[in-house]
Every structure is written in C-alpha cells, then in structure tokens.
Design a protein around this nucleic acid. Structure first.
Lengths: 258, 258
DNA sequence: GCTATCATTTGATCTAGATCAAATCCTGAT
DNA sequence: ATCAGGATTTGATCTAGATCAAATGATAGC
C-alpha cells in the first residue's frame, strides 16, 4: 500500500524513514510529513542488555516499544513466582499494547540478548493519532493481529500434542525470520529450551527429546541454539496449526439481516 | 468517571442512553450529544436464535457487536473441523474486534441461547472516533483487556491442573455476573459441559467428575445447568489464577533511562 | 586456563487426565 | 405423552507426557 515516495538525499530524513523495519512496525501509507511527526515523538535509548528488563509487570504504562534489533520475551508471574511466557519478540515487532486498559504493565519484558528498542510514549501517540488518520486504526489492527495469534496459541495449548506444538513454534519462527529478510530455514534460537517449554506448556525434557526426534526424522538439524530446517513442509504438516477459513457450509444456519 | 448527567424525561433519549448495559460497553465520559451520535450508527436486529451463527470464520468483517441479552460462544475451527472455543460472551460485552486486521472474521460466533445484539458498523465507528475523542482509546482499551484476559487463559492452559481450571472458570463467571448486577453465587450455565471442557482444554468426563467433586467438597451445588456457589473464597484459592503484580524485587536489573 | 554453575540431553518411572464403555437422564420433535 | 438422539454421569483402563535421576556439555567469573 505504501505508494512510491522519492526523497532526495539532501532532504532531512527522519530515523523512521531510514529504518528498514519501518514496513513492519508502521506499514501504513504515511506521507513524509506524517513520518516526521511520528519520528519526533520516538525516543531512542541505550540498548537493553541480556537479562535486563525493559519493563516489569506492575510498572506504570507510559510507552509502547518497537524492537529494532535483538529479541525479548514477555511473561507474567503468578503469586508463586511461576513464570508464564506470553511470547517472544523479534525486530519490527511492537510490544506493550496489552497495558493500555489498566495503564499498568501486566507482563514483564526481558531481553534474551542485547536489544535495541524505540520507545513510543503512548500519550503522544494518542495525540498524534488525532492528526494522522489511520494511525489509530493501525494500532487496533496490530492488537487484533495479536489477538488472533493468541487464539491460535490457545488452540495449540488446549488440544495439540507436543510434536505439533514444537513444529508450530518452529514454523512460525521461520515465517517471522523470513518476513524480516532473514533465512527461513536457518536461524539461531535466542531463547533457552526452558523458555520454549514454558511457552508451549510442556517440560524441558520433552522439548529436548522432540528436537532429537525431529533430527532423526531428518526434518531439521539442531546444534545447540542453531537450527537448520530441512523439511519445512513436513513441519507444517505436523504443526497442523489453526488455519484461516475456507468458508464451508455445514449444519447450523447463519444469521441474516433483521 | 461518568459524571452526573441529568436529563429530563421529556428529552429525546437515545436507546444507548437508556440501555442499562451502557456502562459496560462504553464506559467513557460521553456527553449527550456524543451518545446520540453513537446511538445513530447502531443497528438493532432481530434476535439470534440458539444455535444460529452471528457470524462465521471467514465472513467479511463489517461490524462489531455488543451483547444486550443472552450469551454466545466464539470459536475457531481447524482443518479437521475441530472446534476450539475462544470464549463465552455475556450481556454488555463486545465481540468481533479480533477481525480488524484482516477484515475477515477469524472465529465464529454462535448463540448459546436466544441472543439480542447491537450491531456497530466498524467503518462508521471509525469515522465517529474522529469526532469523539476517547472513543478510539476506548476501543484500544477493550482490546487490551481482551489480551490480558487471554494471557491469563494461556497460563491456565499451559500450567494449571484441571481443578484450578474449572475453579477459575467459575470464579470468573461469578465475577462477570456480579458486574452485570446478577447474583455472584447463583446462576445458570448457558453452555454445555462439552463447551466448558473445550474452553479449558480437557475432557467432558473430567468436567463432570470435577463438578461432582466440588459438590462433595461443599464448594457448590450443581443441578444440571444451575450452579449455586457455596464457598467462593475456596474456589478462588483453588483457581489460583494469574493475579496482578505486587512489584517485588528479585534477581535481574530493570532497565532504566538512556 | 580452571572451576562452579547452569543448560541440555538421555534414560527410567510414574501419574494426571484422556479414552473407552455403558448407564441414565433430558430435550425436542412427532 | 412417547420416543430418538443427544448430554451427562460414572466406572475401568490406558497412555502421553511429566517427573525424577544422572551424565554431559557449555559458559562465565576468577
């Protein structure tokens, strides 16, 4: 949708304009003026080191963040201190939107490796969205994507056998890397086996056994954190993850106009 | 937050203004003028009968819906036709927001009993949100709540033993009924045991056994669809569901300003 | 470079909860 | 009211995946 936009080198170009991730975090048809406005409210910060928190559950919500490089995990912590991982976040992804309604972060975000982020003060983003039509639709759209993704994840946790869960996880990662211009078949896992197990609701030992099993089946080659996928199609078949519609008629009438 | 608003009976009052659920679906500080604008875009429709679909996965997304009476379930269907229930929806709740990003519904909504809904055409809502400041924040806030709720549900599916899952489900229902002005301790389940089992990722038989068990433990009395909770506190203790923070410091430094 | 510590793997066992089976109970349609 | 088909319950069994245990491999701090 972003129509062609030719800008001379001499022009003062905003960081956002030059950012290769821009298509991922703000893929709207923004004019240069709008881009500059957006750029102006964004704060750049020193990198977050591995193991540091970007924010913690309970912190007041002031900003959203866009990942520029590196990766993070978000997770909640229950009263016993048990972690539940919500997701991993790669470059080009936004995080923090779940905190809007309570103006308090409801999960923590911790760097899995050194991470560089853009901070976007939410209040200013809201103000800006009055000037830039489409911005608030875009935010809604992002959240809607997140909801959809979580619906899939819920289905996975509720029904899928362990092989499907891990396969699904790998296929999704592969797709995300591909979207970001990296290899879809060869990448490094920045998270521990423990984190993967936690996300997928299973034991670490099971993750380990599955990696071995997949390797024996020649679906992939795994060496420590490094993954090389040999048979993506087969992994997809195993993952059998919740797919989008193919409107079929069965029992049950659909409601029609009043 | 809604400041006192005195309106003479003679005034032409919009449906929304008279709606007892208004505080639930649009709890913003709207003036009468705004309320009327909102009311004007809302379509009222004939009730959706039990078993009918309000919309199906794959249908084009045009509207959101607010439940006025009755209840629905939303669910996805995978390639094998397996249902995964996403949630149940009670009066005062909005549904359909997850479809924004793809402009296609990604789950189906089916009436569990005769349901009355308000239809809110999304396009007009977007237009309206340019006139009513706070409206789009409100939408974001609703979605953010939904995300939070799903995070809890994910934690439940990934880690909690079956008793906690059912207890948590009942406690949540109880709270929702209470919020709507119904009894928190006595209500009817509009969904089947099968649906509950599906939502909680377990077998119907297990649900049935747990209801019996809870009854033996004098936590509740169950008779068919009718539930009377005797010991809500104990159920809460069992559910041990994901709670909000109580910012404690442990290992791991928090990122601070750049 | 050398440990202590943590992450990962592999093997053996155990169990929560699924599945299978069957009786009973409801509901809605005739 | 009657009956068929579904929903719910209860009991018996089975199993996927957890848990326990122990070896091995990687890493960070000194």
């Amino acid at each position: 949708m972003p129509q062609e936009r030719i800008v001379k080198l001499e022009d003062i170009r905003s960081h956002c304009q030059k950012c290769s991730l821009f298509q991922l975090c703000m893929p709207m048809g923004l004019g240069d003026g709008d881009l500059n406005k957006l750029d102006k409210i964004i704060k750049r910060r020193r990198p977050v080191e591995k193991g540091e928190y970007l924010y913690r559950m309970g912190d007041p919500f002031r900003s959203m963040f866009a990942v520029r490089a590196g990766s993070l995990k978000t997770f909640t912590t229950d009263q016993e201190g048990q972690e539940q991982i919500i997701g991993f976040h790669l470059p080009g992804e936004l995080l923090g939107l779940d905190a809007i309604s309570r103006s308090v972060h409801t999960c923590s975000a911790k760097a899995l490796e050194t991470v560089s982020v853009c901070e976007i003060p939410y209040e200013r983003l809201e103000t800006l969205s009055r000037e830039i039509p489409g911005l608030s639709h875009h935010l809604l759209s992002l959240m809607s994507d997140e909801l959809q993704h979580e619906h899939c994840h819920m289905a996975l946790l509720a029904r899928a056998p362990v092989e499907s869960r891990l396969a699904s996880f790998l296929v999704q990662l592969s797709e995300r890397f591909k979207d970001r211009g990296y290899s879809a078949t060869e990448f490094n896992l920045s998270m521990s086996r423990n984190d993967i197990a936690n996300l997928l609701g299973m034991a670490v030992e099971t993750i380990s056994r599955l990696f071995s099993q997949f390797q024996e089946q020649r679906l992939l080659i795994v060496e420590r954190k490094h993954i090389r996928i040999l048979d993506l199609a087969q992994l997809q078949a195993i993952s059998n993850r919740c797919s989008l519609p193919e409107s079929k008629d069965e029992e049950g009438s659909t409601y029609s106009a009043s």
